[in-house]
Simulated scan of single mutants.
Amino acid sequence: MGEGEGNRAYGHKPFKRSRSHFSDRITADGREGWPVEAGRYRLVVSRACPWASRALVSRRLLGLEGALSLAVADPLQDDRSWRFTLDPDGRDPVLGISHLAQAYEAREPGHPGGVSVPAVVDVPSGKLVTNDYQQLTLDLATEWTALHRPGAPDLYPEPLREEIDEVMEDVYRDVNNGVYRAGFATGQAEYEEACAGVFRRLEWLADRLAGQRYLVGDTITEADIRLFTTLVRFDPVYHGHFKCNRWKLAENAVLWAYARDLFQTPGFGDTVDFDHIKRHYYQVHTGINPTGIVPLGPDLDGWHTPHDRERLGGRPFGEGTPPGPVPAGEEVPAVPAAGA
């Protein structure tokens, strides 16, 4: 997942997420040696990982599927971390490697730190370019514009960036990362502080979203993407596995409707694989769930039920249009419709 995650030993130190070790940027002018170029790079993700899922959503909304190819790792890791066992012969068909670690090693032999997703790999050299999940999606929105599809939304509009950044910082600290601080806590006080912070922020978000359809402005922005990838995992894993159980997402009318609204928007729900999500968290985090048992619930039918958020107005894609169909080979199993 993002830096600092995985099947690690849990001591008595508070959970702290590591910084991305490789923070090169792929830019329109190539100022860091990595110019935006169709077909040159490969995005490596796990559909289990919320940080990687941001990139999946952004790539779909912006129509970058044809310019930035996709490699999906197995949700279950081995001692070398993310692996390509979902592909024929256990190798990524473009990079020709069995483990993402090989791209890290090609970039910096013996590099410190773990192997995280999302990662962008330079196809010609086989070297990792970046694992900076915070910057990656911002650059997809602002540096890759020449390769965006016609009608692509502006996910990081310049007039709103200060407000978007402020909201995202609060959401990251208390929600995106807060659930991990609660889940990986090794002391009662540490857990209670993190868990309380998660729900304080969720209640603040519910108040904010009660009267507006999206977090900032009247269109979908990067802020919505970053909140969605945590909310969609909340009831399946964070509520039970990470003990963030004061209430379920489905018990908060505003946030549940907001999350369903986004899930039903092309580019969001069609990137979500609940099977990968549940198997990864419950089977990889053996320090928290030593039996490796994956729970049967919760019932996922509700994601397709009406959300009634249209009454708040808003224009999901601004002056743009919805993305097209999911490309062949990138489909994920759909959540069963209610009553199915």
Rank of each mutant, 00 (worst) to 15 (best):
I220K: 06
R173K: 14
T145H: 07
V171A: 10
P153T: 04
E143R: 00
D218C: 02
E169Q: 15
W144I: 13
F184S: 05
V171Q: 08
A194Q: 05
L205H: 01
A206C: 08
V175L: 13
A141W: 01
E158T: 14
Y214M: 10
N177R: 09
I164M: 11
E193C: 07
G151M: 06
T186G: 14
W144C: 11
Q135W: 07
E192P: 06
L136N: 10
H148K: 04
D132Q: 02
A152N: 03
R200D: 15
G178A: 09
E163W: 02
A182T: 07
Y156D: 10
G187K: 14
L138H: 13
D139P: 04
Q212G: 09
T186E: 13
P150Q: 04
L202D: 08
N131A: 03
L140N: 02
L227A: 01
G151K: 04
I225H: 01
V175K: 06
D132N: 08
A141K: 03
V171T: 11
A196K: 13
F184Y: 09
L160H: 11
T221E: 02
A185I: 05
R226K: 03
E190M: 12
D165M: 14
L155V: 12
E192M: 10
V232K: 00
F199H: 14
M168R: 15
V167M: 10
G217V: 00
C195P: 06
L205S: 01
A182N: 07
E203M: 06
L205G: 00
E190N: 12
G217T: 04
A210H: 10
Y214P: 09
L136T: 11
G217E: 02
Q134G: 12
E166P: 06
V167A: 12
I220P: 00
V175M: 05
D224S: 08
V179T: 03
T229W: 02
Q134I: 14
G187V: 10
P153R: 02
T142H: 04
R201Q: 15
T142C: 03
L202I: 09
F184I: 02
E143Q: 08
A194K: 07
W204F: 11
E192C: 05
E222W: 04
A223Y: 10
L209S: 13
Q212T: 04
D154K: 01
T221F: 00
A152T: 03
A152D: 00
R226T: 00
V232L: 00
E169D: 13
A152I: 03
R226A: 01
E169G: 14
H148C: 06
R213K: 06
Y180Q: 06
E143V: 00
R201P: 08
T186F: 11
G183Q: 08
V216G: 03
L227C: 02
E163D: 07
L136R: 08
D207Q: 13
D218Q: 03
D174E: 14
I225W: 04
D132F: 05
A185F: 05
L202Q: 10
L147I: 04
Q134D: 14
Y191R: 08
A185P: 05
D207A: 15
L140R: 00
R201L: 13
E190T: 13
G183D: 09
D170M: 11
L231N: 07
G217Q: 01
A146K: 13
L155I: 12
A210I: 09
L209A: 12
V198F: 02
D207L: 10
E169S: 15
F199E: 06
Y156G: 04
Y214F: 15
Q188C: 08
P159D: 06
L215V: 05
